[in-house]
Design a protein around this nucleic acid. Structure first.
Length: 273
DNA sequence: ATTGAGACCTGTCGGC
DNA sequence: TGCCGACAGGTCTCAA
């Protein structure tokens, strides 16, 4: 469940399920995900209380009473489940081979991290420390600090296609393959257009930068408000809608799929310029 | 400095 | 039925 709205939905669920509880037991069922778990991972989690669950881009940040922070990335297929199992249920269910981490809390809640593809990541950040993965990360798209001026400055002089640019987490945090296509459709901008064309050479925003910043905010805001349920129900405007009519009123175009930087892009060639 | 291709890993789906 | 390739919401690294 990987883009900003999905990660935010996981954050809310985890915060509700775990906040204030102590970590009583941690079970690692394999030594690594995308990378090995850090040394003493289990020891550094055990016995500490979960104070809050935050998010930065697509990363979850679990603040512990020890002062350390558990950093989690869901990759492509990572998911958390939190439940208070009945003993009988626990004993009878066959273990899922992709349940890689099981955390038992003092409240009786059991948090399970499941990740078939293992592109996920878990690491620990020392008290007062900064994690390498977050160092160069761009602004949060839903913060006020992110606007057309910031976006235009980041685009000035860049020859990359807008769609590819939006996937760069240093430009803006949390946008992935689905919402990049959705935001560009909302903005009426072609995914193939060079990033530099939405800014003046000096880096000031042109009209297109205003539309794109607004498009990013609009599609993410809407998905966050819907608790990211769009993916299951396929309620996207262009994503995975190749061959269907463009949803823009009066457009009449047909959604196309192209490949950019090895990933699928969906757009309407008629209304996205 | 950018940009593209390939790698990482498993599951699913459509075509033959 | 099974086999095969294409594809999937994300990064990384390496080479041109």
């Amino acid at each position: 469940m990987p883009e900003l709205p999905e990660v935010e939905a996981v954050r809310r669920m985890l915060e509700r399920a775990t906040r204030g509880a102590r970590i009583d037991r941690v079970e690692l069922r394999r030594p690594d995900l995308r990378r090995p778990f850090p040394p003493d991972f289990v020891t550094r989690l055990s016995g500490h209380t979960i104070q809050s669950v935050g998010r930065r881009g697509k990363y979850l940040l679990v603040a512990l009473s020890s002062g350390e922070t558990l950093l989690v990335h869901l990759g492509m297929s990572g998911a958390f489940h939190a439940a208070k199992p009945r003993a009988a249920h626990r004993a009878s269910s066959t273990p899922d081979p992709h349940d890689h981490v099981v955390i038992v809390l003092s409240s009786g809640v059991v948090v399970t991290f499941n990740d078939p593809r293992r592109f996920g990541l878990m690491d620990l950040i020392r008290a007062g420390g900064q994690h390498e993965a977050l160092r160069a990360m761009g602004p949060e798209p839903l913060d006020e600090a992110f606007d057309a001026a910031v976006l235009a400055r980041a685009c000035a002089g860049k020859r990359v296609a807008l769609k590819v640019l939006l996937l760069d987490q240093r430009i803006v945090a949390g946008v992935g393959n689905i919402y990049a296509s959705e935001a560009l459709h909302h903005a009426g901008l072609s995914p193939r257009r060079r990033a530099s064309t939405i800014a003046t050479p000096a880096g000031a925003p042109r009209e297109a930068a205003l539309k794109l910043a607004a498009g990013i905010k609009a599609v993410l805001q809407k998905a966050v408000a819907a608790n990211a349920r769009a993916y299951e129900s396929g309620r996207f405007r262009v994503y995975e809608r190749e061959g269907e009519p463009c949803p823009r009123r009066g457009c009449g175009g047909t959604i196309r799929r192209i490949t950019q930087a090895g990933r699928s892009t969906y757009y309407c060639p008629v209304c996205q310029k």
